[in-house]
Design a protein around this nucleic acid. Structure first.
Lengths: 165, 165
DNA sequence: TCAACCCATTGCGAAACGCAAGTGGTCGAA
DNA sequence: TTCGACCACTTGCGTTTCGCAATGGGTTGA
Protein backbone atom coordinates (compact mmCIF):
# COMPACT_ATOMS: atom_id res chain seq x y z
CA UNK A 1 0.00 0.00 0.00
CA UNK A 2 2.75 2.46 0.14
CA UNK A 3 3.09 4.06 -3.26
CA UNK A 4 5.97 1.92 -4.30
CA UNK A 5 5.53 2.54 -8.01
CA UNK A 6 6.96 -0.75 -9.12
CA UNK A 7 5.46 -1.03 -12.59
CA UNK A 8 2.56 0.13 -14.71
CA UNK A 9 0.97 -3.30 -14.94
CA UNK A 10 -2.69 -3.01 -13.95
CA UNK A 11 -2.52 -6.18 -11.86
CA UNK A 12 0.48 -4.80 -10.02
CA UNK A 13 -1.19 -1.44 -9.47
CA UNK A 14 -4.25 -3.15 -8.06
CA UNK A 15 -2.01 -5.12 -5.71
CA UNK A 16 -0.24 -1.96 -4.63
CA UNK A 17 -3.58 -0.58 -3.47
CA UNK A 18 -5.21 -3.70 -2.12
CA UNK A 19 -2.42 -6.22 -1.65
CA UNK A 20 -2.37 -6.54 2.09
CA UNK A 21 -4.19 -8.60 4.64
CA UNK A 22 -6.74 -6.04 5.79
CA UNK A 23 -7.88 -3.59 3.11
CA UNK A 24 -10.25 -5.99 1.38
CA UNK A 25 -11.51 -7.29 4.72
CA UNK A 26 -12.62 -3.78 5.62
CA UNK A 27 -14.27 -3.29 2.25
CA UNK A 28 -15.96 -6.68 2.57
CA UNK A 29 -17.43 -5.70 5.94
CA UNK A 30 -18.73 -2.39 4.64
CA UNK A 31 -20.12 -4.07 1.53
CA UNK A 32 -21.65 -7.32 2.78
CA UNK A 33 -22.09 -6.49 6.44
CA UNK A 34 -23.14 -2.87 5.98
CA UNK A 35 -20.79 -1.76 8.76
CA UNK A 36 -20.62 1.95 8.33
CA UNK A 37 -18.79 3.33 11.37
CA UNK A 38 -15.43 2.82 13.02
CA UNK A 39 -16.94 1.25 16.12
CA UNK A 40 -19.15 -1.05 14.12
CA UNK A 41 -16.24 -2.24 12.01
CA UNK A 42 -14.09 -2.73 15.09
CA UNK A 43 -16.47 -4.49 17.46
CA UNK A 44 -18.19 -6.76 14.95
CA UNK A 45 -15.04 -7.76 13.12
CA UNK A 46 -15.02 -11.49 12.50
CA UNK A 47 -11.23 -11.50 12.22
CA UNK A 48 -10.57 -9.20 15.18
CA UNK A 49 -8.86 -6.28 13.47
CA UNK A 50 -6.76 -4.10 15.78
CA UNK A 51 -7.94 -0.55 16.37
CA UNK A 52 -4.81 1.11 15.00
CA UNK A 53 -4.82 -1.06 11.88
CA UNK A 54 -8.46 -0.22 11.28
CA UNK A 55 -7.85 3.51 11.74
CA UNK A 56 -4.94 3.32 9.33
CA UNK A 57 -6.89 1.42 6.67
CA UNK A 58 -9.88 3.73 6.88
CA UNK A 59 -7.53 6.65 6.37
CA UNK A 60 -5.72 5.06 3.44
CA UNK A 61 -8.83 3.73 1.73
CA UNK A 62 -10.49 7.11 2.06
CA UNK A 63 -7.40 8.84 0.70
CA UNK A 64 -7.26 6.54 -2.31
CA UNK A 65 -10.92 6.93 -3.12
CA UNK A 66 -12.19 3.50 -2.13
CA UNK A 67 -14.21 4.80 0.77
CA UNK A 68 -15.77 8.16 1.52
CA UNK A 69 -16.47 9.60 4.92
CA UNK A 70 -19.20 11.99 6.01
CA UNK A 71 -20.00 13.12 9.54
CA UNK A 72 -22.83 11.46 11.44
CA UNK A 73 -25.59 14.08 11.94
CA UNK A 74 -26.52 12.46 15.27
CA UNK A 75 -23.05 12.35 16.68
CA UNK A 76 -20.44 14.98 16.12
CA UNK A 77 -17.56 12.60 16.64
CA UNK A 78 -18.68 9.75 14.45
CA UNK A 79 -18.02 9.37 10.77
CA UNK A 80 -20.12 7.32 8.38
CA UNK A 81 -18.13 5.45 5.76
CA UNK A 82 -19.54 4.66 2.34
CA UNK A 83 -18.36 2.70 -0.64
CA UNK A 84 -17.45 4.63 -3.77
CA UNK A 85 -18.03 3.63 -7.37
CA UNK A 86 -14.46 2.29 -7.45
CA UNK A 87 -15.01 -0.05 -4.51
CA UNK A 88 -18.47 -1.08 -5.70
CA UNK A 89 -16.72 -2.30 -8.83
CA UNK A 90 -14.77 -4.70 -6.65
CA UNK A 91 -17.88 -6.86 -6.29
CA UNK A 92 -16.87 -9.31 -9.04
CA UNK A 93 -13.38 -9.54 -7.58
CA UNK A 94 -14.68 -10.36 -4.10
CA UNK A 95 -17.16 -12.82 -5.58
CA UNK A 96 -14.32 -14.62 -7.33
CA UNK A 97 -12.21 -14.58 -4.20
CA UNK A 98 -15.07 -16.16 -2.30
CA UNK A 99 -15.57 -18.76 -5.00
CA UNK A 100 -11.90 -19.62 -5.12
CA UNK A 101 -11.66 -19.80 -1.33
CA UNK A 102 -14.67 -22.04 -1.16
CA UNK A 103 -13.05 -24.47 -3.55
CA UNK A 104 -9.44 -24.36 -2.42
CA UNK A 105 -9.48 -23.68 1.31
CA UNK A 106 -11.47 -25.04 4.25
CA UNK A 107 -14.04 -22.34 4.95
CA UNK A 108 -16.68 -22.62 7.65
CA UNK A 109 -20.10 -23.53 6.40
CA UNK A 110 -22.07 -20.49 7.56
CA UNK A 111 -19.59 -18.04 6.16
CA UNK A 112 -19.56 -19.83 2.81
CA UNK A 113 -23.25 -19.44 2.14
CA UNK A 114 -22.97 -15.90 0.83
CA UNK A 115 -20.05 -16.82 -1.41
CA UNK A 116 -21.99 -19.77 -2.74
CA UNK A 117 -25.01 -17.65 -3.61
CA UNK A 118 -22.83 -15.04 -5.29
CA UNK A 119 -21.08 -17.70 -7.29
CA UNK A 120 -24.31 -19.33 -8.44
CA UNK A 121 -25.92 -16.02 -9.25
CA UNK A 122 -23.06 -15.03 -11.52
CA UNK A 123 -22.60 -11.66 -13.21
CA UNK A 124 -26.35 -10.99 -13.31
CA UNK A 125 -26.56 -11.19 -9.53
CA UNK A 126 -23.40 -9.15 -9.11
CA UNK A 127 -24.86 -6.41 -11.25
CA UNK A 128 -28.07 -6.39 -9.23
CA UNK A 129 -26.02 -6.19 -6.05
CA UNK A 130 -23.96 -3.32 -7.41
CA UNK A 131 -27.12 -1.43 -8.31
CA UNK A 132 -28.28 -1.89 -4.74
CA UNK A 133 -24.93 -0.79 -3.31
CA UNK A 134 -25.20 2.40 -5.35
CA UNK A 135 -28.49 3.00 -3.59
CA UNK A 136 -27.12 2.27 -0.14
CA UNK A 137 -23.89 4.23 -0.56
CA UNK A 138 -24.28 6.71 -3.40
CA UNK A 139 -27.85 8.04 -3.25
CA UNK A 140 -28.99 6.15 -6.31
CA UNK A 141 -32.65 5.12 -6.44
CA UNK A 142 -33.67 2.03 -4.51
CA UNK A 143 -34.01 -1.03 -6.72
CA UNK A 144 -36.92 -3.42 -6.27
CA UNK A 145 -34.73 -6.41 -5.58
CA UNK A 146 -32.58 -6.54 -2.48
CA UNK A 147 -29.66 -8.89 -3.04
CA UNK A 148 -28.29 -7.70 0.26
CA UNK A 149 -31.33 -9.02 2.10
CA UNK A 150 -31.18 -12.30 0.20
CA UNK A 151 -27.56 -12.82 1.17
CA UNK A 152 -28.23 -11.86 4.75
CA UNK A 153 -31.25 -14.16 5.02
CA UNK A 154 -29.28 -17.10 3.64
CA UNK A 155 -26.49 -16.42 6.10
CA UNK A 156 -28.81 -16.18 9.09
CA UNK A 157 -30.57 -19.35 8.07
CA UNK A 158 -27.20 -21.12 7.98
CA UNK A 159 -26.34 -19.78 11.42
CA UNK A 160 -29.66 -20.97 12.80
CA UNK A 161 -29.16 -24.37 11.21
CA UNK A 162 -25.78 -24.61 12.84
CA UNK A 163 -27.06 -23.57 16.26
CA UNK A 164 -29.85 -26.15 16.09
CA UNK A 165 -27.41 -29.04 15.78
CA UNK B 1 0.56 -15.57 4.55
CA UNK B 2 1.46 -16.93 7.87
CA UNK B 3 -1.27 -19.32 8.88
CA UNK B 4 -3.02 -16.82 11.08
CA UNK B 5 -6.34 -18.61 11.16
CA UNK B 6 -8.43 -15.51 11.66
CA UNK B 7 -11.79 -16.75 10.45
CA UNK B 8 -13.43 -19.30 8.21
CA UNK B 9 -14.68 -16.74 5.70
CA UNK B 10 -13.62 -17.85 2.21
CA UNK B 11 -12.61 -14.31 1.26
CA UNK B 12 -10.46 -14.09 4.36
CA UNK B 13 -8.89 -17.49 3.73
CA UNK B 14 -8.05 -16.47 0.18
CA UNK B 15 -6.44 -13.31 1.52
CA UNK B 16 -4.46 -15.30 4.05
CA UNK B 17 -2.90 -17.23 1.18
CA UNK B 18 -2.57 -14.51 -1.43
CA UNK B 19 -2.94 -11.23 0.43
CA UNK B 20 0.52 -9.78 0.07
CA UNK B 21 2.34 -7.74 -2.52
CA UNK B 22 4.26 -10.52 -4.25
CA UNK B 23 2.48 -13.88 -4.35
CA UNK B 24 0.11 -12.96 -7.16
CA UNK B 25 2.90 -11.18 -9.04
CA UNK B 26 4.85 -14.43 -9.12
CA UNK B 27 1.80 -16.38 -10.25
CA UNK B 28 1.09 -13.75 -12.88
CA UNK B 29 4.62 -14.10 -14.29
CA UNK B 30 4.41 -17.87 -14.42
CA UNK B 31 0.96 -17.69 -15.97
CA UNK B 32 1.17 -14.87 -18.50
CA UNK B 33 4.92 -14.68 -18.99
CA UNK B 34 5.59 -18.41 -18.87
CA UNK B 35 8.57 -17.88 -16.56
CA UNK B 36 9.27 -21.31 -15.24
CA UNK B 37 12.56 -21.08 -13.32
CA UNK B 38 13.92 -19.10 -10.43
CA UNK B 39 16.42 -17.24 -12.59
CA UNK B 40 13.86 -16.44 -15.22
CA UNK B 41 11.44 -15.07 -12.64
CA UNK B 42 14.19 -13.05 -11.01
CA UNK B 43 15.95 -11.51 -14.00
CA UNK B 44 12.88 -10.73 -16.11
CA UNK B 45 10.78 -9.37 -13.25
CA UNK B 46 9.04 -6.18 -14.29
CA UNK B 47 8.76 -5.09 -10.67
CA UNK B 48 12.26 -6.08 -9.61
CA UNK B 49 11.51 -8.69 -6.98
CA UNK B 50 14.36 -9.33 -4.53
CA UNK B 51 16.00 -12.73 -4.62
CA UNK B 52 15.16 -13.64 -1.04
CA UNK B 53 11.52 -12.63 -1.44
CA UNK B 54 11.25 -14.70 -4.60
CA UNK B 55 12.84 -17.73 -2.94
CA UNK B 56 10.46 -17.38 -0.01
CA UNK B 57 7.36 -17.06 -2.20
CA UNK B 58 8.30 -20.01 -4.38
CA UNK B 59 8.67 -22.06 -1.24
CA UNK B 60 5.38 -20.94 0.25
CA UNK B 61 3.40 -21.20 -2.95
CA UNK B 62 4.75 -24.68 -3.55
CA UNK B 63 3.96 -25.70 0.03
CA UNK B 64 0.38 -24.46 -0.27
CA UNK B 65 -0.22 -26.18 -3.57
CA UNK B 66 -0.33 -23.17 -5.89
CA UNK B 67 2.87 -24.12 -7.68
CA UNK B 68 4.62 -27.41 -8.20
CA UNK B 69 8.30 -27.93 -8.71
CA UNK B 70 10.10 -30.60 -10.64
CA UNK B 71 13.83 -30.86 -11.30
CA UNK B 72 15.20 -29.69 -14.63
CA UNK B 73 16.53 -32.77 -16.43
CA UNK B 74 19.26 -30.66 -18.05
CA UNK B 75 20.47 -29.03 -14.87
CA UNK B 76 20.69 -30.72 -11.50
CA UNK B 77 20.33 -27.49 -9.61
CA UNK B 78 17.41 -25.95 -11.45
CA UNK B 79 13.78 -26.48 -10.71
CA UNK B 80 10.95 -25.98 -13.14
CA UNK B 81 7.86 -24.46 -11.62
CA UNK B 82 4.39 -25.17 -12.90
CA UNK B 83 0.93 -23.92 -12.10
CA UNK B 84 -1.47 -26.30 -10.43
CA UNK B 85 -5.19 -26.64 -10.97
CA UNK B 86 -5.71 -24.34 -7.97
CA UNK B 87 -3.62 -21.53 -9.43
CA UNK B 88 -5.03 -22.02 -12.92
CA UNK B 89 -8.40 -21.30 -11.37
CA UNK B 90 -7.07 -17.88 -10.40
CA UNK B 91 -7.37 -16.79 -14.04
CA UNK B 92 -10.74 -15.07 -13.56
CA UNK B 93 -9.46 -13.35 -10.43
CA UNK B 94 -6.39 -12.00 -12.20
CA UNK B 95 -8.52 -10.97 -15.17
CA UNK B 96 -10.78 -8.98 -12.85
CA UNK B 97 -7.81 -7.44 -11.09
CA UNK B 98 -6.46 -6.33 -14.42
CA UNK B 99 -9.81 -4.94 -15.45
CA UNK B 100 -10.23 -3.05 -12.19
CA UNK B 101 -6.70 -1.70 -12.34
CA UNK B 102 -7.18 -0.57 -15.89
CA UNK B 103 -10.21 1.42 -14.86
CA UNK B 104 -9.13 2.78 -11.50
CA UNK B 105 -5.39 3.27 -11.66
CA UNK B 106 -2.98 4.74 -14.19
CA UNK B 107 -1.48 1.73 -15.91
CA UNK B 108 1.04 1.97 -18.71
CA UNK B 109 -0.38 1.38 -22.14
CA UNK B 110 1.67 -1.63 -23.23
CA UNK B 111 1.07 -3.50 -20.02
CA UNK B 112 -2.66 -2.87 -20.23
CA UNK B 113 -3.15 -4.56 -23.57
CA UNK B 114 -3.31 -8.06 -22.15
CA UNK B 115 -5.75 -7.00 -19.45
CA UNK B 116 -7.91 -5.33 -22.05
CA UNK B 117 -8.05 -8.43 -24.22
CA UNK B 118 -8.87 -10.62 -21.23
CA UNK B 119 -11.62 -8.27 -20.18
CA UNK B 120 -13.17 -8.11 -23.63
CA UNK B 121 -12.89 -11.87 -24.13
CA UNK B 122 -14.79 -12.55 -20.93
CA UNK B 123 -15.37 -15.97 -19.34
CA UNK B 124 -15.21 -17.75 -22.72
CA UNK B 125 -11.68 -16.50 -23.28
CA UNK B 126 -10.69 -17.26 -19.70
CA UNK B 127 -11.85 -20.82 -20.10
CA UNK B 128 -9.90 -21.21 -23.32
CA UNK B 129 -6.84 -19.82 -21.58
CA UNK B 130 -7.28 -22.19 -18.66
CA UNK B 131 -7.51 -25.14 -21.04
CA UNK B 132 -4.24 -24.03 -22.58
CA UNK B 133 -2.58 -23.57 -19.19
CA UNK B 134 -3.55 -27.15 -18.32
CA UNK B 135 -1.66 -28.18 -21.41
CA UNK B 136 1.39 -26.08 -20.62
CA UNK B 137 1.56 -26.99 -16.93
CA UNK B 138 -0.39 -30.19 -16.33
CA UNK B 139 0.21 -32.45 -19.34
CA UNK B 140 -3.27 -31.99 -20.72
CA UNK B 141 -3.65 -32.22 -24.51
CA UNK B 142 -2.76 -29.17 -26.57
CA UNK B 143 -5.79 -27.16 -27.60
CA UNK B 144 -6.06 -25.77 -31.11
CA UNK B 145 -6.36 -22.18 -29.97
CA UNK B 146 -3.47 -20.47 -28.22
CA UNK B 147 -4.76 -17.62 -26.10
CA UNK B 148 -1.27 -17.29 -24.71
CA UNK B 149 0.10 -16.48 -28.15
CA UNK B 150 -2.72 -14.03 -28.84
CA UNK B 151 -1.99 -12.16 -25.62
CA UNK B 152 1.71 -12.17 -26.27
CA UNK B 153 1.30 -10.95 -29.84
CA UNK B 154 -0.94 -8.09 -28.73
CA UNK B 155 1.59 -7.11 -26.08
CA UNK B 156 4.51 -7.16 -28.48
CA UNK B 157 2.57 -5.15 -31.01
CA UNK B 158 1.93 -2.53 -28.34
CA UNK B 159 5.60 -2.44 -27.39
CA UNK B 160 6.57 -1.98 -31.04
CA UNK B 161 3.99 0.78 -31.44
CA UNK B 162 5.41 2.51 -28.41
CA UNK B 163 9.01 2.22 -29.64
CA UNK B 164 8.03 3.63 -33.03
CA UNK B 165 6.77 6.87 -31.54
C1' DT C 1 41.12 -26.92 -14.05
C1' DC C 2 38.72 -22.79 -13.84
C1' DA C 3 35.74 -19.14 -14.91
C1' DA C 4 31.02 -18.32 -15.52
C1' DC C 5 26.56 -19.39 -14.05
C1' DC C 6 22.91 -20.30 -10.88
C1' DC C 7 19.95 -21.00 -6.69
C1' DA C 8 19.59 -19.48 -3.08
C1' DT C 9 21.13 -17.59 2.08
C1' DT C 10 22.72 -14.05 5.37
C1' DG C 11 23.02 -9.58 7.62
C1' DC C 12 20.99 -5.53 8.48
C1' DG C 13 18.05 -1.42 8.44
C1' DA C 14 13.29 0.03 7.51
C1' DA C 15 8.55 -0.63 7.39
C1' DA C 16 4.34 -3.01 8.69
C1' DC C 17 1.83 -5.66 12.10
C1' DG C 18 -0.44 -6.51 16.48
C1' DC C 19 -1.46 -5.97 21.21
C1' DA C 20 -2.61 -3.19 25.23
C1' DA C 21 -3.08 0.97 27.36
C1' DG C 22 -4.11 5.73 27.14
C1' DT C 23 -6.15 10.40 25.41
C1' DG C 24 -9.34 13.74 24.73
C1' DG C 25 -13.66 14.74 23.22
C1' DT C 26 -19.05 13.68 23.28
C1' DC C 27 -23.42 12.05 25.08
C1' DG C 28 -27.17 11.22 28.25
C1' DA C 29 -29.19 10.64 32.56
C1' DA C 30 -29.45 12.24 37.33
C1' DT D 1 -24.27 20.94 35.71
C1' DT D 2 -22.05 17.10 36.81
C1' DC D 3 -20.46 12.62 36.11
C1' DG D 4 -19.94 8.17 34.28
C1' DA D 5 -20.21 5.76 30.07
C1' DC D 6 -19.00 5.86 25.44
C1' DC D 7 -16.42 6.71 21.27
C1' DA D 8 -12.85 7.55 17.78
C1' DC D 9 -8.72 7.36 17.54
C1' DT D 10 -3.38 7.55 19.20
C1' DT D 11 0.82 5.96 21.45
C1' DG D 12 4.36 2.80 22.94
C1' DC D 13 6.62 -1.20 22.25
C1' DG D 14 7.93 -5.71 20.82
C1' DT D 15 7.57 -8.92 16.80
C1' DT D 16 7.34 -10.03 12.08
C1' DT D 17 7.88 -9.03 7.29
C1' DC D 18 10.08 -6.45 3.59
C1' DG D 19 13.84 -5.05 0.74
C1' DC D 20 18.52 -4.33 -0.58
C1' DA D 21 23.27 -5.75 -1.16
C1' DA D 22 26.70 -8.93 -0.49
C1' DT D 23 28.00 -13.61 -0.14
C1' DG D 24 28.07 -18.82 -0.32
C1' DG D 25 28.61 -22.89 -2.50
C1' DG D 26 27.24 -26.23 -5.85
C1' DT D 27 26.99 -26.99 -11.24
C1' DT D 28 28.30 -26.49 -15.97
C1' DG D 29 30.96 -26.20 -19.96
C1' DA D 30 35.08 -24.73 -22.27
Amino acid sequence: MPQTGRSGCPINLTLEQLGDRWSLIVIRDVMFGNRRTYGDLLSRSEEGIASNILADRLKRLTASGLLSRRPDPNHQQKGIYSLTEASIQLVPLLAHMGAWGRRHTQPSEELSVRAELLEKGGPALWDAFMVELRHLHLDAPRPSRSVFRELQAAYEKAVARKARD
